[in-house]
């Protein structure tokens, strides 16, 4: 008894291999989606996000008859803050619970006993959770769009569509980070704690740190932009504003620098940042998960 092939045993090259891999990923995604949607925290977040999104839409429209006129829509400004608080929290916690939870419950071994690779397991879980998150946000955005259509009309629809798309991208990135934390931790409590800590860093501490740095070291615009844009939340915020205004002049000298330097490329660069935050942590998670022990 030297080395048992615990991992995927080399299977005979069959025509259906790829197909079966895909279908097993789908099966896992489906299971994950179902588990997520029926879990209590998920329903709680969905309800909270929906209620807040609709409330923000209502309240910011109540004040004046100015919609679509201002450089930066009040509704989007309100929604933006809400999204930047709730969505990363939701996605990080969802991701953090995924593997660590199974591990703690002892079900991970059972899952790994299925004829699939660890990569497929992780991807399946990721896809299932991603779809669940996007569906959850669609409820909030859908009702919010309904409020806008009712009260304002079709003003700024393209910007709103981009807002939804970039929010989904942000959720994917944060989910990816959450899964990495989950793979790293043995217990789900630890994973959740790490997730909360990551949320605190990304949402508050990194920005506050950069603010302090800007004041203390008198950072130049290009430095502030380069450091700031590395934060997926800042990238998300800039992307939303760029899509709404076609310029970042709302964000002062740094924003103008970015607009003038990158011009039409800016939305793509910001999307690339979010894409990197999606792919890199997930790839690291896959690597670590396939190397580490099961329990």
């Amino acid at each position: 008894m030297t080395t048992l092939p615990i991992k995927t045993s080399p299977q005979p090259a069959a025509i259906g291999t790829h197909l079966s891999k895909v279908s097993s990923v789908i099966a896992f995604a489906r299971r994950e989606f179902r588990d997520a949607v029926s879990s209590r925290w998920f329903i709680l977040y969905t309800v909270a996000f929906t209620v807040l999104a609709v409330a923000v839409s209502f309240m910011s429209l109540a004040g004046s008859g100015s919609h679509g006129f201002a450089g930066f829509g009040r509704t989007t400004a309100g929604l933006l803050n809400l999204i930047m608080l709730v969505v990363p929290l939701m996605a990080l916690i969802a991701g953090a619970g995924s593997i660590a939870g199974e591990r703690e419950r002892g079900t991970l071994l059972y899952l790994l006993a299925q004829p699939i690779s660890r990569t497929e397991l992780l991807l399946g879980k990721y896809i299932g959770l991603a779809i669940a998150l996007c569906c959850s946000m669609c409820i909030g955005f859908g009702l919010s769009a309904g409020v806008l259509a009712w009260r304002v009309g079709g003003v700024g629809i393209s910007a709103f569509v981009m807002l939804v798309l970039f929010t989904c991208l942000l959720a994917l990135a944060m989910l990816s980070v959450g899964m990495l934390l989950s793979v790293l931790s043995r217990r789900s409590g630890v994973a959740t704690g790490l997730g909360l800590f990551a949320w605190l860093i990304l949402v508050f501490l990194s920005d506050l740190g950069l603010m302090a740095g800007t004041i203390l070291f008198k950072l130049r615009v290009q430095e502030v932009f380069a450091i700031g844009v590395m934060n997926p939340l800042q990238a998300f915020k800039m992307a939303v504003i760029v899509n709404m205004n076609a310029s970042l002049d709302v964000l002062g000298p740094v924003g103008m620098y970015a607009s003038q330097t990158f011009g039409g490329m800016l939305p793509w660069i910001l999307a690339l940042v979010l894409g990197t935050w999606t792919i890199v942590p997930l790839a690291i998670a896959v690597l670590i998960f396939s190397k580490r022990g099961s329990v």
């Binding site: 930066f72 400004a77 933006l80 803050n81 930047m84 608080l85 949402v203 508050f204 920005d207 506050l208 950069l210 603010m211 800007t214 004041i215 008198k218 950072l219 615009v221 502030v224 932009f225 700031g228 939340l233 800042q234 915020k237 504003i241 709302v250 964000l251 002062g252 000298p253 740094v254 924003g255």
Partner: peptide, 19 residues
């Protein structure tokens, strides 16, 4: 802070501002 350092305007509309 903005009046002191206009570059900080990049942090407008973010939770850090609210904090």
């Amino acid at each position: 802070l903005l009046a002191r350092q206009p570059n900080l305007r990049i942090f407008l509309h973010s939770p850090a501002q609210q904090a």
